[in-house]
């Protein structure tokens, strides 16, 4: 029972964490909470659906990730950079517009019915008392590897140092000779790539729908906000935290009163609202900051 709870939280948390890290990185370097971030997951998943009719699934997935990165860079250059120049309100409303436009475009091209990436039937295996399918194990492994890679990149490479410099103080980074535009482009590429990995893994579990990414908006935002917008480590911890709270709340049974499974998304919302009311600076944040 407990093992299954933890396993479920690991799977769900891995999906959320890949998205929350990208969201928080973009926020950290640009002070921009991108509502359209989840759409990179949807785009990556659908690109993989299309490519998988030509290539084997791993190659299709790789092209899906590359396509999402290209779209991430293009959308920043064409839309978000200009929106950000107009101010926070425009950027916020504009990112919601981009999100809706992408969903509509996907629906126009692929229809509303779920689309599947070809896969074989799987049998769940038992690990330490928890039932997991091989694709769920792969999801957790791929996510953890991608997160570790991102962490290492940020901590130990010159690029990572520049990203952290821009996040800490854009003006100071600029006068210190950091090419801010390049750093921001790199951040968008990382964020879009991680989101696409999450979307593809999710689509491999079940199927791709136009709302695949948008459906994760609130849990991802709760994870990023609870973790403290801008904090990568906080976002990862909070993602698994949100997932664990969801699993525990759904499994809890107090005198026959339990939370129906339909309310799964609500747990994330309540978590988010409580976090916003009581700890707006996030888990690892030290001071309240107004944005």
């Amino acid at each position: 029972m407990t093992a299954q709870l933890i396993a479920d939280a690991l799977v769900r948390g891995s999906t959320i964490a890949l998205l929350a890290v990208g969201l928080t990185l973009v926020y950290g370097t640009m002070r921009f909470a991108n509502v359209a971030h989840m759409e990179f997951a949807t785009l990556g998943a659908y690109a993989t659906v299309t490519m998988s009719s030509v290539f084997i699934v791993p190659v299709a997935a790789a092209t899906g990730v590359l396509l999402a990165i290209a779209l991430g860079l293009a959308s920043y250059q064409l839309v978000f950079r200009r929106l950000l120049a107009k101010g926070e309100t425009s950027a916020m409303i504009g990112s919601l517009a981009v999100s809706i436009v992408v969903q509509a475009a996907v629906q126009l091209c692929y229809g509303t019915r779920p689309r599947e990436i070809p896969r074989e039937l799987e049998r769940a295996t038992s690990i330490l008392g928890a039932e997991l399918t091989p694709s769920q194990i792969r999801l957790v492994a791929v996510s953890l590897a991608a997160l570790a890679l991102t962490g290492a990149l940020l901590r130990w490479t010159p690029l990572g140092k520049k990203v952290r410099a821009v996040a800490a103080d854009p003006a100071l980074a600029r006068v210190s000779g950091v090419a801010e535009r390049r750093v921001i482009a790199a951040v968008w590429a990382i964020a879009a790539g991680l989101a696409a990995v999450s979307g593809i893994e999710l689509a491999l579990q079940s199927s791709a729908t136009p709302a695949l990414g948008f459906g994760l908006l609130l849990p991802v935002f709760s994870a990023a906000i609870v973790g403290g917008l801008g904090s990568v480590a906080g976002a990862v911890i909070a993602s698994y935290g949100v997932a664990l709270v969801e699993s525990i709340a759904l499994a809890a049974d107090v005198d026959g009163v339990s939370v129906p499974v339909n309310y799964r998304p609500a747990i994330g919302f309540v978590f988010l609202i409580l976090a916003l009311v009581f700890r707006p600076q996030g888990l690892l944040g030290v001071r309240a900051r107004h944005v």
Partner: peptide
């Protein structure tokens, strides 16, 4: 009172989605 623009906008979205979920169920 405590929330800046971004946080408040997301909180309102969460409240609206919560209402939709409760009504659906």
């Amino acid at each position: 009172r405590t929330l800046g623009g971004v946080y408040w906008a997301i909180a309102t979205l969460a409240v609206a989605e919560l209402l939709r979920l409760v009504i659906s169920n």
